[in-house]
Design a protein around this nucleic acid. Structure first.
Lengths: 116, 116
DNA sequence: GTGATAGTTAAGTAGATGCTTAAGTATTCG
DNA sequence: CGAATACTTAAGCATCTACTTAACTATCAC
């Protein structure tokens, strides 16, 4: 199992939950407090805090407490890492398709010249 | 919790495991049999089959059995869906940065004109 | 047919996950 | 000060996950 990345593990795992995606969705608009994040979610506050901990562990979100309010903000680099992994795979797959297409065209050309 | 997508749940969940990412990594190169997928993974064959089932449930991989060999291939559309979700969020975040930058510049201009 | 190959099915298990409620601790307001 | 706000911590619990081993089925090769 080469190039194992616990970083990707935790980012993809964090994004696999709808409540956590909703929180990310909210945070890309602007920073928010824990209760602001909780408001649209039908869940207890401690539940939200646990999701927040998962997002922070994945490096997707950072937060800072001032007074009694914890303000959360998104960390786009982690998001970018996941995006990069996917797009690299897509690139490999598309290159393969291109090579396949080229081979098929060559075969067609060969058939034409041998048939005529 | 608006626009809940079980599709994204399952795709991100599938990608959160290193063995499954390794399988995707292999399959973007070319289709492969179950045992070919299993070879680089230090895991029993039934374990691999279970991971395969997760990938298929997420729509990331499809497979077909011919004779005694099951051939697996990647389904890039599901990958693209996950990539799209991430890139949409990144776009929102970047737009916000642009607006912020514009506002800051305006403030600077105002200060200059009022100071002088 | 016999045996090897390729995969499948079933059952069990340790540990992680996604919640909950209850009971705290700070901070701010009047 | 005393009450309201904004979290935080702890504990408990049902369910899900990622494996395992053992036993089975369906090809294919001779």
């Amino acid at each position: 199992m080469l190039k194992y990345s616990p970083q990707l593990d935790s980012v993809f795992h964090a994004l696999a939950d709808p409540a956590r995606r909703a929180m990310v969705d909210r945070l890309v608009q602007s920073p928010a407090s824990v209760s602001e994040l909780a408001k649209p979610l039908s869940m207890s506050l401690p539940g939200v805090v646990q999701h927040l901990a998962v997002l922070e562990a994945a490096g997707l979100v950072s937060s800072e407490k001032v007074g009694r309010v914890r303000t959360c903000r998104i960390e786009p680099e982690a998001l970018r890492g996941a995006e990069r992994w996917i797009s690299e795979r897509r690139t490999v797959w598309e290159r393969r398709l291109d090579r396949l297409g080229a081979v098929l065209e060559e075969l067609e050309d060969l058939e034409e010249t041998t048939d005529e």
